[in-house]
Design a protein around this nucleic acid. Structure first.
Length: 745
DNA sequence: CTGGGTGCAGTTTTT
DNA sequence: CTGCACCCAG
């Protein structure tokens, strides 16, 4: 098909034409393409259309195109949009349908593609591995890593060097800091190990450089290599190493054949790589993309450096900002050969809002430093049809947080009453933490409910407090630790408190439903008859599912929310059951053994590990409710969201709470510095941790602000307006908030 | 309207 | 333990 015919079909389908910048991205030919796209500029749409152009106009085989993005949700969305368009085109050109199978596109998160491609190509380095998710990796390190297990002071120099990984508030131990007299506890060493090990891989480090660096890196290497050996021995692979293995695959002859293709129909090689959300890419992912495109240089990246939010995962905006240089270095081409396109027309927000957030991001001297933003990035150009002379940027205030929340509630109520909005879901409240506590979403959720406006807040970490979850866990613990000897020996009071709540919930249920109480009693009696040092025939999953089979749990199957939650809990049990038992090859934590010294009771070690490892982690991090992937928000509810959750979405009315945030040098920022000297591709920009922390905070608000279509409204209690210790960012934020109009009260 | 004392609560994000 | 939200004295 001709490109003009193609663009015409798209125009007919959309009802309007792409703008010239968008068209030029879609039409672009071969070679690296760097698309710097602002919020609401249609960047994902352009990526979708460019993909279709490669298939339909350029006749590239679908299996030779790789499209990746950052989250599963976004990947699914990309695929749906491509499928939708292609179906419309096939309706008009039925012949094309015979030749093209959209399902052959290699589309997904980079992680899922790494996994699928290595399995499909039967890469020996990735055969028969079990991929560890976050919880599994934690439990694996807790039980197997020498760094977590060693009780001597062998790792003391390492802990001291990475002091900041241990210093912060610790919810498990109830707020005590590491006293530095002895090595931090196992729970903290595990959390620190995860960060260090993952970062080592994600930052794409050269371990031979590290080897030469002496103390404490020699100790770190020892710990890291021990973890690697454990992974290999038990045939496990974490998310970070999945990418490392993929890079090894690409460097192997098998990978080379995958890239170049062979004569078979099945393997046509890789012609094109398209990456969405490139600003959140980390160094090993950058290396993967550059390697994938090493032969034809057909790498198209799309992103907005101002919307980078994922430093905690090793993401560095630098990859986006220095894309040109990276291509020059990797491909040996000149920088003129890297095409740059700016998508700066905004079709989302009221012009006043666009100008507000555009001014906002440019107003920080820090954002004007070399390498902070893409060079030559143009200002946003408001192009939406939204107009009208009303305060599109405003604020609502109040003497205290609850009063501000109340005023916010009245405001929303008015919007509904006056028919300015039809549904609460046309609003969204964005904040740092959506937990329903006094400092966070508590007052706001309460104010809305008080006025009869239902709230949608699935990420409020209330999972473990739900009656069905508490009930099942209470019943389970009543079976495996019936006399609570192990529980009472747990020194961390928060774990005991959590479990006691569950037991209480179970007691309530047991009184009402004798059936489950009977099952629990029967199970305890059965275990009490087993001799010492014996394996018990049922494993923890059997017990778990038996509990579910009794009322009231089996009756809750009709409640989709409860069913979904119980499903999540069963995944957690399955995960725990899969962890290999140290010192007992072939067995796992799912299998129960009686104590070595006395019969009739589950091994003391098993019970304490269950409490410290699994319950300790769950109760410290909390768990979110499951979310329905299809629905962003039920129409009749007002969503309370974190900024990350809202990324990529838009709402008519956006309320932002929390202008009082201050930049913090958190551990992901400090680790970035600690490892930078060992990077295989050394960073091309150089900022201090303070500067990076400020950049992150500025971008954080930028993402929040740019979600708004009709109105952007700050929620600002008095305390936030006058607090004297606001730092640089806070003061500047305040200046911007002053540009807003008071719309509350 | 400011500032010091008191009391209470205690990130977030993803594969 | 730290830090903030809030209150009340000046």
């Amino acid at each position: 098909m001709d490109i003009n015919d193609f663009l015409e079909i798209i125009r007919d389908e959309k009802g309007y034409d792409l703008d010239n910048e968008q068209k030029s991205v879609v039409k672009h030919g071969d070679g690296p393409l760097w698309v710097v796209a602002g919020p609401g500029s249609g960047k994902t749409e352009v990526l979708v259309l460019r993909t279709l152009k490669l298939i339909i106009v350029d006749n590239l085989p679908t299996s030779s195109i790789i499209i990746t993005t950052f989250t599963e949700k976004a990947a699914k969305n990309l695929f749906d949009r491509i499928l939708n368009y292609s179906n419309l085109i096939f309706q008009k050109y039925p012949d094309l349908e015979q030749e093209i199978d959209i399902h052959d596109l290699k589309i997904g998160t980079l992680h899922s593609l790494c996994n699928d491609i290595m399995l499909e190509n039967k890469y020996p380095g990735y055969e028969n591995y079990r991929l560890l998710d976050e919880l599994e990796q934690y439990l694996f390190i807790f039980e197997h890593s020498d760094f977590a297990k060693d009780k001597s002071d062998k790792y003391m120099p390492l802990c001291e060097h990475f002091e900041y990984l241990f210093q912060r508030f610790d919810p498990v131990t109830g707020g005590q800091k590491w006293n530095k007299e002895k090595v931090p506890n196992k729970w903290r060493r595990t959390t620190a190990a995860i960060k260090l090990f993952n970062r080592t891989v994600e930052d794409y480090l050269d371990l031979s450089k590290m080897k030469k660096a002496g103390e404490p890196w020699n100790v770190f290497l020892e710990a890291y290599l021990d973890y690697l050996n454990n992974l290999e021995e038990h045939r496990r692979c974490d998310f970070a190493h999945l990418q490392e293995k993929f890079l090894e695959f690409l460097e192997s002859p098998l990978g080379d054949r995958f890239l170049k293709g062979d004569d078979s129909e099945k393997n046509q090689g890789i012609n094109y790589i398209l990456v969405d959300e490139y600003q959140d890419t980390n160094p090993i992912q950058e290396a993967i993309y550059l390697k994938l495109a090493q032969y034809n240089h057909n790498l198209c990246v799309v992103g907005d450096d101002d919307q980078a939010l994922y430093r905690f995962r090793g993401g560095t905006v630098d990859c986006m900002v220095t894309f040109k240089k990276a291509c020059v270095n990797a491909f040996g081409i000149s920088k003129e050969q890297v095409a740059v396109k700016y998508l700066n027309s905004n079709y989302r927000s009221h012009p006043n809002i666009v100008n507000y957030y555009d001014d906002y991001i440019k107003s920080f001297p820090n954002m004007r430093l070399d390498g902070a933003r893409v060079e030559g990035k143009p200002s946003l150009n408001p192009k939406s049809k939204i107009s009208g002379d009303y305060p599109a940027v405003g604020y609502i205030t109040g003497r205290t947080i609850p009063i501000t929340a109340e005023n916010f509630g009245f405001f929303v109520e008015d919007l509904l009453k006056n028919g300015i909005i039809e549904q609460p879901s046309q609003c969204a409240l964005l904040m740092r933490s959506v937990r329903e506590t006094p400092r966070n979403a508590g007052a706001f959720a309460a104010a809305l409910r008080e006025l009869g406006i239902p709230v949608y807040n699935p990420r409020s970490k209330s999972f473990l407090e739900q009656e069905e979850i508490a009930g099942v866990l209470g019943a389970f613990i009543s079976i495996i630790d019936p006399d609570f000897t192990a529980l009472n020996s747990v020194v961390i009071s928060n774990i005991r408190k959590q479990v006691e709540n569950w037991l209480e919930e179970y007691q309530k249920i047991a009184q009402q439903y004798p059936e489950i109480a009977e099952y629990v009693d029967k199970s305890v009696k059965k275990i009490s008859k087993v001799d010492a040092e014996e394996w018990i025939k049922v494993n923890i999953l059997d017990i778990f599912y038996h509990i579910l089979a009794h009322s009231p749990f089996n009756e809750w199957k009709d409640d989709p929310e409860k069913t979904y939650r119980l499903g999540m809990l069963s995944t957690i049990f399955e995960t725990y059951a899969s962890i290999p038992y140290p010192g007992h090859p072939g067995s796992s934590r799912g299998e129960l053994r009686t104590s070595k010294t006395e019969g009739g009771i589950i091994s003391y070690g098993w019970r304490t590990t269950f409490y410290y490892a699994l319950i300790g982690l769950l109760s410290s991090t909390g768990l979110d409710d499951p979310e329905n992937e299809q629905i962003i928000t039920p129409p009749d509810r007002l969503p309370i969201m974190t900024v990350h959750q809202a990324k990529g979405l838009e709402f008519p009315f956006i309320f932002v709470y929390g202008l009082n945030l201050r930049p913090r040098n958190d551990d992901s920022i400090l680790l970035e510095d600690a490892f930078s000297e060992f990077r295989k591709n050394p960073p091309l920009v150089d900022f201090t941790p303070e500067e990076r922390a400020e950049h992150d905070l500025i971008r954080f608000y930028y993402v929040a602000y740019s979600r708004a279509k009709y109105a952007l409204i700050h929620l600002v209690p008095d305390a936030h307006r006058k607090s004297g210790n606001l730092g640089f960012i806070g003061k500047r934020l305040q200046k911007f908030e002053d540009k807003a109009e008071n719309v509350g009260g």
